[in-house]
Computed example of a mutant assay.
Amino acid sequence: MNIEQYLSTHDSLVYSNKGVSMLPMLRQGRDLMIVRRKREGERLKKYDVAIYIRPPHDYVLHRIIRVDEGGYVFLGDNCENKEYGIREEQVIAVMTAFVHKGKQIDVTDKGYIFYSRFWYLIYPIRRAARRSKRFIKKILRKLTGRK
């Protein structure tokens, strides 16, 4: 049974995320996400974390960073590249809470709200730091003769 099928008969799902795209908030093998089915006609908001379907049929949990007419722009907390053109019908669920290091945190928690806004605010700094790190590693590899 896939996530869509499960949510068609149950309103919510507790699930362990896969991958590193939502670090540092969610760590694979340690944390859980709690999502609910996206309601018919519901428009999500900037900073919501949602599950959407990336063709052909991959489930992705990322943060909405912009709401457009008919769709969204998403970005994983640990990602550099934004994903544009995610249509309304691709979004199937929205996160309501998560379990981090054994503690459940609701998305209405003030600390979480601060984190989600701050983390996106420093996105340009995080992106530049990552690129600089890769550039330095590339130079060091050339200087040492490693590939």
Rank of each mutant, 00 (worst) to 15 (best):
I3Y: 08
Q5S: 14
Q5T: 14
T9L: 03
H10Y: 12
Y15D: 12
G19T: 05
G19A: 00
M25T: 09
M25V: 14
L26C: 02
L26P: 03
L26H: 08
R27H: 13
Q28D: 12
G29D: 12
G29N: 11
D31L: 01
L32N: 09
I34L: 08
K38F: 07
G41C: 07
L44M: 13
K46Y: 05
I51A: 01
I51P: 00
I51W: 04
I51Y: 08
P55V: 05
Y59Q: 09
Y59E: 13
E69C: 03
G71F: 04
Y72N: 05
V73L: 07
L75A: 13
C79M: 14
E83L: 05
Y84R: 11
Y84D: 02
I86L: 01
E89I: 07
E89K: 13
F98E: 08
Q104H: 00
I105P: 00
I105E: 00
V107W: 02
T108V: 08
D109E: 11
G111W: 05
G111L: 02
G111V: 00
Y112V: 08
Y112Q: 00
I113R: 15
I113D: 09
F114R: 13
Y115M: 08
Y115I: 04
F118I: 08
Y120I: 05
L121V: 07
Y123S: 10
R126N: 09
R126L: 15
R127V: 15
A128F: 12
S132Q: 00
S132W: 12
F135Q: 05
I136Q: 01
I136P: 00
R141N: 11
K142L: 14
K142E: 12
L143C: 12
L143F: 07
G145C: 05
R146C: 06
R146N: 10
